[in-house]
Amino acid sequence: HDTTVHINGLRIEVHGASEEILKWIEEAARRGVEAEEIKRWVEEALK
Rank of each mutant, 00 (worst) to 15 (best):
V5E: 04
K23N: 11
K39D: 02
T3R: 12
H1M: 12
V42K: 00
V14M: 07
V5R: 05
G9K: 01
L22K: 04
A45K: 08
E34M: 11
I21M: 12
E34S: 14
A17D: 05
W24T: 03
K39L: 13
E44I: 10
I25D: 00
I21F: 08
G16A: 07
V33Q: 05
E36F: 06
E19V: 13
A35S: 07
T3A: 10
E44R: 08
G32I: 02
A35Q: 04
G9F: 00
V42A: 04
R31E: 09
H6C: 15
T4M: 03
E43N: 03
S18A: 10
N8F: 00
I25H: 00
G9W: 00
L10C: 10
E19P: 14
A17M: 09
S18Q: 03
N8M: 00
S18I: 07
R11T: 15
I38M: 05
E26M: 08
A35I: 14
D2Q: 15
I21D: 03
V42R: 00
G32F: 07
I7L: 04
V14F: 07
I21K: 01
K39Y: 09
H15D: 11
W24Q: 05
G16F: 07
R31W: 05
R40L: 07
E26I: 09
R30G: 12
A29S: 10
E36I: 12
I12A: 01
H1N: 13
R30Y: 07
G16S: 07
E34N: 13
R31N: 13
I12K: 01
R40A: 10
L46E: 03
G16N: 10
E44H: 11
A29Q: 12
E37T: 12
N8W: 00
E36R: 09
V5P: 03
V33N: 02
E26F: 07
V5T: 04
R11A: 15
E13N: 14
K39W: 08
L46G: 03
K47Q: 12
H15N: 12
R40S: 08
D2E: 14
E20H: 10
R40Q: 09
A45C: 11
L10R: 06
E44P: 00
E44A: 14
T4W: 00
T3Y: 11
A29I: 15
E13R: 07
I12T: 02
E26A: 06
E26P: 01
V33D: 06
I21A: 02
I21V: 11
H15W: 09
R31H: 10
L46P: 01
I12R: 00
S18N: 10
S18E: 04
I7R: 00
I12L: 04
S18W: 06
G16M: 07
A29H: 11
W24A: 08
G32T: 01
R31Q: 11
V42Q: 01
E27I: 06
V42F: 06
H1F: 13
T3I: 14
W24M: 09
E34G: 12
S18M: 06
I7N: 05
V14D: 03
K39T: 05
E43I: 05
A28F: 07
E43V: 03
V5F: 01
V5S: 04
I38G: 00
H1D: 13
D2F: 14
L22W: 06
E27C: 06
G32R: 02
A28G: 01
K23L: 12
V5G: 04
T4D: 09
E43Q: 06
G9D: 14
R30I: 13
V33T: 07
V42L: 10
A28Y: 04
K47A: 13
H6M: 09
E36V: 10
G16P: 04
A45L: 14
A17F: 07
E37C: 07
R11P: 15
K39C: 08
K47R: 14
E44M: 08
R40K: 12
R40C: 05
E36L: 10
E43P: 00
L46T: 07
H1W: 11
T4H: 15
K47C: 11
V42I: 10
E43H: 03
L22Y: 06
S18V: 08
T4N: 08
H1I: 12
V14Y: 04
E27K: 05
R30C: 07
S18C: 05
K39R: 10
R40E: 07
R11Q: 15
K47S: 13
I38S: 00
N8K: 05
N8A: 08
E37V: 12
E27M: 04
E26R: 04
K39G: 05
N8S: 05
S18H: 06
E26D: 11
T3L: 13
H6D: 14
I12S: 02
R11Y: 15
A17L: 10
W41Q: 08
V5K: 07
E27R: 06
I38H: 00
V42G: 00
E27F: 01
K47M: 11
E13W: 01
R11F: 14
E13D: 14
A28T: 02
T3C: 08
R40F: 08
R40G: 05
A35K: 04
I12F: 04
I38F: 02
K47P: 06
G32S: 04
E19N: 11
A17S: 07
R40M: 07
T3G: 15
E37A: 11
I38E: 00
K47D: 09
E19W: 09
E37N: 07
R30D: 09
N8G: 15
A17N: 04
E19H: 12
I25Q: 00
V14L: 13
R11V: 15
I25F: 03
E34R: 12
W41H: 12
E43G: 04
A29P: 01
R30K: 15
L22P: 01
V5N: 07
A28L: 13
V42S: 01
T4I: 15
N8C: 04
T3D: 13
R11S: 15
I7T: 01
G9S: 02
I21W: 04
I12P: 01
A17E: 03
D2Y: 09
V14W: 03
E34K: 13
K23V: 08
A17V: 11
E44T: 10
A45R: 08
V5D: 05
E26S: 04
L22N: 02
I21Y: 02
E27Q: 11
H1L: 12
E20C: 09
T4S: 14
K39E: 05
E44G: 10
T3H: 14
I7F: 01
L22E: 02
E13H: 09
E19S: 10
E13C: 15
R40Y: 08
A28D: 02
T3M: 13
E37G: 03
G32D: 03
I21T: 04
G9R: 01
L10P: 04
D2K: 15
K23Q: 14
L10H: 13
E34L: 12
H6A: 07
A45S: 09
E44F: 02
E20N: 08
D2C: 14
